[in-house]
């Protein structure tokens, strides 16, 4: 509901999230190293094939790209007038490849799978005092509270609209903040009542001292 994930059974959907994220990471770096119009055109054809294989509905893909497209046009025009159209085409194609690749990963991977990958990737950071289980608990809490806070914000917006205050940022933010601060107290109590113990992970370089 909250995520952009589109369920499906293609090999891209089933591929491990770690692999997809790694390819995206390497791919995005490579794009800046090798930049030419024929290469990007070939990449576009390849990505179009992947989108076809993933059987993603056009609607979701287009919706994801629409806002980016609005940016691509001025970037292209900028180059046409200031530098030259070849560089403009190359730049726009490169951004397009990058965006399509990222959209493909976003639409075919469940956020929970990506959280698991992040938790695994963050494990080595334990040595500098980062606690991966705490981090993933906080991520879960954010996902839990976003829909609630959005509904709250919606109600505030409607209430202030009725009073003609919906153009007043302070009148919108203040009630939302008060709600947040009150909720924070209740929630901390509830978490501790259920036996949660935020035992600190002591960084190794501090243990020695």
């Amino acid at each position: 509901m909250l995520s952009l994930y589109v369920p499906g059974g293609s090999f891209i959907h089933r591929a491990p999230a770690a692999v997809k994220l790694l390819i995206l990471l390497i791919g995005s770096a490579a794009l800046f190293m090798v930049s030419s119009i024929p290469v990007h055109a070939a990449e576009l054809v390849l990505i179009a094939g992947l989108f076809h294989a993933a059987r993603l509905p056009w609607r979701d893909t287009v919706r994801q790209l629409r806002t980016a497209m609005i940016l691509l046009i001025p970037i292209f025009l900028f180059h046409v007038f200031i530098t030259d159209w070849v560089l403009g085409l190359e730049t726009v194609l490169r951004i397009l490849v990058l965006l399509l690749l990222a959209v493909l990963v976003t639409l075919t991977t469940k956020p929970t799978e990506m959280i698991d990958v992040l938790e695994a990737a963050a494990r080595p950071l334990r040595h500098v005092g980062v606690n991966p289980s705490k981090a993933s608990m906080m991520l879960s809490m954010v996902i839990r509270f976003i829909p609630m806070m959005m509904r709250e914000a919606q109600e505030i917006l409607e209430a202030q609209r009725a009073r003609g205050l919906d153009r007043n940022a302070i009148a919108l933010l203040m009630p939302l903040l008060i709600k947040t601060l009150k909720m924070a107290d209740d929630l901390s109590e509830a978490i501790e009542a259920r036996g949660y113990d935020p035992e600190p992970v002591v960084p190794v370089w501090r243990k020695k001292g």
Binding site: M138, M141, V142, F145, L176
Partner: peptide, 11 residues
């Protein structure tokens, strides 16, 4: 930390 991340999203 979690609630302010949610608050930013709710904005």
């Amino acid at each position: 930390v979690a609630l302010f991340a949610a608050l930013t999203a709710a904005c």
